[in-house]
Simulated assay, not measured.
Amino acid sequence: MGVNWDLHLLAPLHGIFGDEHEYRPKDGVPFTVNGIFDRGYVQAAENLDGDSEINTTNPALGVRDADFISSGYALPVQGDRVFINTVGGVPVNQLFIVADVQPDSHGGSKLVLNLVKKR
């Protein structure tokens, strides 16, 4: 019998390190989801001209697929949005769009995010 990764690993981790965020599916009603937000890291890459560097970040949100399924919501897809309010009590207050969904095969997904620019 296999290990229930969601029950024994993901649920306890999200209970300790997760925060409540507003998930906004592109085809649906916003709802609250528990997730572990990572601001990402700065990655320097050479520009095509070879004379300058481009700095990028890769913010991500780890979510449990069970949170979506048990609440009757569709699993995350590219183009959905998520509003990150606070992380560990520290205000973030930023809206992100889901650029990529990377299932981890253990009941969770890593949502690669891009910051939505304010107009």
Rank of each mutant, 00 (worst) to 15 (best):
G2R: 07
I84H: 06
P30N: 05
Y23Q: 10
G89M: 01
N55C: 07
A74S: 10
N47A: 13
P30A: 07
L61D: 01
V77Q: 09
N55W: 12
V33Q: 00
Y41H: 13
N4E: 03
N93Y: 09
H21L: 10
R39P: 15
R39W: 11
R24G: 01
G72W: 00
Y23M: 14
L13E: 03
E22M: 12
I36P: 04
L9C: 07
L48S: 14
P30G: 08
F37P: 15
A45E: 14
G15H: 01
N55D: 08
L10D: 02
Q78L: 12
V33H: 00
D27K: 03
R39V: 14
G2A: 08
I16C: 08
G79W: 07
D49C: 11
E20T: 10
F68D: 03
D80A: 14
N93I: 05
A60E: 13
D49E: 10
G72V: 00
N85P: 01
D67Q: 12
G79M: 09
L13M: 10
P76D: 08
R81T: 15
N34T: 12
L7W: 01
T32H: 09
F31T: 04
A44Y: 14
A74V: 04
D19L: 04
A45T: 14
D80S: 14
G15T: 02
L13N: 04
H21S: 07
A45D: 13
V82R: 02
H14C: 06
L61V: 02
A11K: 11
G28C: 00
H14E: 05
D38H: 12
G15V: 03
I16Q: 10
